[in-house]
């Protein structure tokens, strides 16, 4: 069955939720791609996000990987267009109007009101991703509810990013090396 129309519908919808960053859409992405459409498992979604974290540019380019898995390179292209075109057009139009609305008092209200909403959705997405990334099944099939080593790595990176000026991209690569040696 041709999945491309469903891919386009899902990712166009998800793109509208990415206020303040891609993480806001992560809970809904997990629901739709894992539970509803069974395109990927929650582990594969975590893996794709991790690959996106290592790729240059916006890490939400990882949506291309879902499209590729479901419908090949054409699927990747369809998902990318669906994910970037509708919000892109919206930004182009609103960006032009926005500048002309500098004196409109509600403009400030919308910006001030959106800020905590975006922060809240980002934390909600971070919690969903963190939960899925810390629980996983071993290659042997044995299900691990919570992986202590991964939690330690996550907290270590959190502190290193906040307290040092180390390059986050290098820290992320180092985590991959730690993963291999710790047989995560």
């Amino acid at each position: 069955m041709n999945q491309i129309p469903s891919l386009v519908a899902v990712f166009a919808y998800l793109s509208l939720l990415t206020v303040g960053g891609g993480m806001a859409a992560y809970p809904e992405m997990e629901t739709l791609t894992v539970d509803v459409h069974h395109w990927v498992t929650s582990q594969q979604l975590v893996h794709f996000y991790s690959l996106g974290q290592m790729a240059p540019g916006p890490n939400m380019n990882m949506v291309a990987a879902i499209g590729e898995k479901v419908a090949g390179p054409l699927g990747a292209l369809a998902v990318l267009l669906a994910f970037y075109a509708p919000t892109g057009l919206l930004t182009l139009l609103v960006g032009r109007i926005w500048t002309r609305l500098a004196a409109w008092p509600w403009r400030t209200s919308i910006q001030q009101g959106m800020s905590p909403a975006a922060l809240g959705l980002m934390l909600a997405g971070a919690l969903t991703f963190g939960k899925s990334s810390l629980e996983f099944s071993k290659p042997t099939g044995q299900m691990i509810e919570f992986n202590l080593i991964e939690a330690v790595v996550a907290v270590a990176i959190l502190l290193l990013v906040l307290r040092t000026k180390l390059n986050p991209a290098l820290l992320i690569l180092a985590c991959g090396v730690v993963g291999v040696f710790a047989h995560l």
Binding site: M23, V46, H47, Y49, S50, L51, Q53, M54, G125, A126, F129, G130, S133, L134, F136, N147, I149, E150, A151, V153, A154, V155, A156, I157, L158, L159, L160, V161, L162, P168, L171, I172, L173, A174, C175, G176, V177, V178, G179, V180, A182, H183, L184
Partner: peptide, 16 residues
Amino acid sequence: SALHGVAAGATGLIFA
């Protein structure tokens, strides 16, 4: 294993 390590790191980075 490598991707789980990266995922753990990404979790820390997102919270940071």
